[in-house]
């Protein structure tokens, strides 16, 4: 060893770190979460494939929660389209343009909050970039993770993207008004796939177009609000369809 012989040559050392690689993101997420908790804002991280109906669910949510103060940050690679739709629906909304990034991270959300009136909100919906892979890895400081899964995507999506569904407090099975046109798709099969990747599979079936199932979704949100961001309480009891 060169520190013992004194020759001055460099020495090779091993440093044990044992630290999460995304520890920095987790610190920022904890900071966001603390802000939301202090101000009583319920932050909902809404994830799902492109075209799964995330924006449509939020438009319908705005109709159902008229009188409550709703805000949204919409992650979008290139456009302001979703935020524009949400503003028309009465939600205070702005885009987080991610460029080529396939997900939001806690820092992007934190920076967006600097120029966004989030403190006055009852609910802040963070509409993540449409993607069933990358967004699952990043904590944003949300109270709950909600994953939109449309019936047209197929019954086996939970099995193909287990990490996304593992992280979900609630799965919204969307576009159920299309079921009569999809003879090969059964909600029971989706539920069974969810039970193989979520220890507490919790889902609701909704149609933003017809309004079917929306009261249950709004009641679920209200329960999250009452429990002040305690997802374990919000998504109980047990498995199967959520009973708000």
């Amino acid at each position: 060893m060169c520190d013992t012989c004194g020759c001055g040559d460099p020495e090779r050392v091993a440093v044990d770190v044992h630290e999460k690689i995304l520890a920095g993101n987790e610190r920022t997420a904890a900071h966001n979460r603390e802000h939301f908790r202090e101000r009583g804002v319920v932050a909902v991280n809404l994830m799902g494939s492109p075209g799964s109906g995330k924006t449509a669910v939020l438009e319908a949510t705005a109709r159902g929660l008229a009188g409550q103060r709703l805000g949204a940050l919409a992650g979008d690679l290139a456009t302001d389209h979703d935020a524009e739709r949400l503003r028309i629906a009465g939600i205070v909304a702005r885009s987080i343009t991610t460029g080529s990034a396939c997900h939001l991270d806690a820092g992007m959300v934190h920076r967006a909050l600097h120029s966004f009136p989030w403190r006055e909100l009852d609910y802040l919906f963070i509409e993540n970039v449409g993607n069933l892979v990358c967004p699952a890895v990043y904590d944003l400081g949300q109270a709950v993770n909600v994953v939109a899964l449309s019936v047209t995507e197929g019954e086996d999506k939970p099995l193909k993207y287990p990490v996304m569904f593992l992280k979900a407090d609630l799965v919204l099975i969307t576009k159920i008004d299309l079921l009569p046109h999809l003879p090969d798709i059964r909600v029971e099969a989706i539920a069974e796939a969810l039970a193989r990747v979520m220890p507490r599979p919790t889902y609701l079936t909704v149609s933003a177009r017809t309004g079917a199932g929306l009261p249950a979704w709004l009641a679920w949100l209200a329960r999250v609000r009452e429990s002040r961001a305690a997802p374990a309480v919000a998504s109980s009891p047990g498995s199967g369809p959520a009973h708000p």
């Binding site: 050392v13 091993a14 440093v15 044990d16 999460k20 690689i21």
Partner: peptide, 12 residues
Amino acid sequence: EIVLDRIEMEVA
């Protein structure tokens, strides 16, 4: 897990 366990580096 997404964990950094160990770094081997050269110090002068």
